[in-house]
Design a protein around this nucleic acid. Sequence first.
DNA 1: AATTTACGTCAGTCATATTGACTTAATTCT
DNA 2: AGAATTAAGTCAATATGACTGACGTAAATT
Lengths: 188, 188
Amino acid sequence: MTDVNFKPDQPPLRQGADKARTQQPGGSESDSADTLSYDLIELLFFAYRDFTGDPDDVLAKYEFGRAHHRVLHFVDRNPGIMVTDLLGILRITKQSLGRVLKQLVDAGIIEQREGHHDRRQRLLYTTDRGHALAVDLTSLQQKRLERALIGLPDGSDEIIRRFLLRMIDPEARPQILQLIRSLYDLKD
Amino acid sequence: MTDVNFKPDQPPLRQGADKARTQQPGGSESDSADTLSYDLIELLFFAYRDFTGDPDDVLAKYEFGRAHHRVLHFVDRNPGIMVTDLLGILRITKQSLGRVLKQLVDAGIIEQREGHHDRRQRLLYTTDRGHALAVDLTSLQQKRLERALIGLPDGSDEIIRRFLLRMIDPEARPQILQLIRSLYDLKD
DNA sequence: AATTTACGTCAGTCATATTGACTTAATTCT
DNA sequence: AGAATTAAGTCAATATGACTGACGTAAATT
């Protein structure tokens, strides 16, 4: 067994069923409305966990964490991005970014250059090494996505893209679509 | 503007394009193989962020975090679960769970009862309050999922379920399918 | 009777995030 | 030209959620 610690020889969890509330786990009884369905929620939880797990393993060798990955990813995707814009994408504070960014710069993964027109700016770029690492991490995730998609009916990726886009807060979608340049045409 | 701090009046990010590496962001040039595509990766990132954002806001009022949510969720889903099994699902250590669980117990959200057959066990149950909170959080996420699904072609949810399942490490799938009882029949 | 299991706890550490205040330099506004 | 704003960085303190390693106790299993 890998990591998860189940005991498949025991009755699959839940040995108790004594209290008041009708003891149906995802109970279709006393619940809010028309039977909560948990499957998508839980699938998303586990899928995302494993999705981020691949890069995490590689990053660990560099003594980097997920925060470094996010910064590296968006800098590599947006060469010359301003610190302020990066903060906006990541929705973290300057102070949080500060430490992580410094480590990436010190490690020769990210480079800062003065802005052309605005000399207050420190535009961010990946170095060649940094770009290589970013590509490495991205292709791990890409491979997982490809493996998950093969075997699904034609047009599934389109459906999944639309689904994911619509999971995002409507107000945030325009900016994200802009970020993901390849999807300008995606039907909402 | 909500939260993301873009400047739509500026050229949509990236003002620089000077260095060596062909400055195509997701470069179809020098990259590993057949053009990395970033859209699904980024959609998943933002979708998951907003998906967890709804519960986070509610939990903040209780002074709880995402760790509490995960514990609450899986205890509510598996009434009478053993501490050991919960650790296995969450893939965290006893010590990490300890603090969070204690807070949930102190707040009257989760209840511990001695095992029937095995008196070493502290089986975990949500209290009525805890169950109510769990339902509350779940329905927020459920609503977001429903909003994302309406308008998609028939059978989309099936495709998405299969996709998400296949994003999970193959070794972990059996246990997860067992956890998500409603999906026993899901075609791999 | 010895071993293993379930649970808890003590103590220390780390990574990632937060808030608030303040500085410097550069740009923009009036 | 002077005032206000913006970009970036920094100091200091704090919180959360995770980790390791070690140890203890009670109950079950072998």
